Amino acid sequence: MQRDPFQLKLKFDSLETLSALMTRHQGDASDIADALAVFDPAQLAALGQSEASVSKELQARNKRLIDELRQRGPRRALALHPDALARLDELRARLPHFGEVIDELGDQVALAREARRPLRAQPLLLLGPPGVGKSYFCNQLADALGLPTHRLAMDNAQGSALLSGSATFWSNSQTGLVFKALAQGTHCSPLILLDELDKAPRDAQYDPLASLHGLLEPSTAQHFEDSSFGLQLDARFVLWVTTANTLEGLDAPLRSRFSVHAIPAPTREQARRIAVGVAQDVVAQSGLAMEVGPGVLDALAPLTPRQQRQSLERALARAVRHQRLSIQVEDLPASRPRLGENLRRPFGFVPV
């Protein structure tokens, strides 16, 4: 069968284009493999020469920041943990009710590794009632990926200054969380957790979510500028994770920027698995050769991950005080919820 020359030409051109892209990609593979510039050093140098309009206090602050960033340089690490995919699989086994979220991120981790580029994932919104382990999951996720974590409680956020900095006309102007995570951080993909997004106080003049519209769009995030320090930062690769109990109060344009995942309450068996992971973490961080006795995990299962950790830390201290090498049920705080109480209502973590 005779082939259309035009089709052959298109295929050839596509292959040539692909080959050229691969050649360029391989040519700067060392840059892709280890670090990414998050700001322009030339713009940083220019900042120190254009501060006549700011107060002496801000000039001194800016000089300290400029000196710090010059010393650190513009490049931030982009590599994920070498075993990130295997660690995500382990996390899925421990927190199966977050399976959809983990699978979505696992796909992006595999793509970033194969393409040898930074992780670029759609901002995540974890939707669910209090106590399903959303905040605990975010900490475990950052650990699995090998990313630094920065948390902002949105229920107390007054305006967008905590996220994107305060204006320089304020005498106490300060940079925001994004600046600290990127410019003063170590990685180009820090995990920024915005906890309880739906509880953010909304005010027409001081809306704490206003700056998110730009930060969650890659085209504008690439040129993010903190209100307190006029240095453009490349914030495209920040891993945004937010939690909420409801979508009420979040406008449609903001919601559309998120990949929304409804997190169900864990089953009894899933909750017990979570308790296993929490117990392993607590014992490992203690540095002691401590065992967890029979019945402890069942006693912990009705609690939230935070309550599990708090109970285990107190129980471990009590076991050490009594010179035992295992944590027993009697070491757990007496004030914890009893299993029988939780069995009489639909199972799930109790609210914090």
Rank of each mutant, 00 (worst) to 15 (best):
R3T: 05
R3C: 03
F12T: 07
D13A: 11
S14P: 01
T17I: 06
T17H: 09
T23W: 09
Q26N: 11
D28W: 15
D31A: 14
D31N: 13
D34P: 03
L36F: 14
P41Q: 02
L44V: 00
A45L: 00
A52Q: 03
V54K: 02
K63C: 02
L80W: 13
H81R: 13
E90G: 15
A93F: 10
R94L: 11
E100S: 03
A112R: 13
R113K: 15
A115H: 13
A121I: 09
A121V: 15
P123D: 07
P130N: 02
C138D: 08
R151K: 13
N156L: 15
L162V: 02
L163N: 01
W170E: 10
N172S: 13
N172E: 13
Q174W: 05
K180I: 04
P190M: 15
H213L: 07
Q222W: 08
E225M: 11
S227I: 09
S227R: 15
S227D: 14
S227F: 15
D234K: 14
L239K: 06
E248N: 02
L250P: 00
L250S: 02
R257I: 01
R257A: 00
A262P: 02
A262K: 01
A265R: 05
A265V: 01
T267G: 11
T267K: 04
I274S: 10
I274P: 01
A279E: 04
V283L: 09
V296R: 08
L316K: 08
R324P: 04
E330D: 12
D331C: 07
L339H: 08
E341T: 06
P346V: 00
F347P: 00
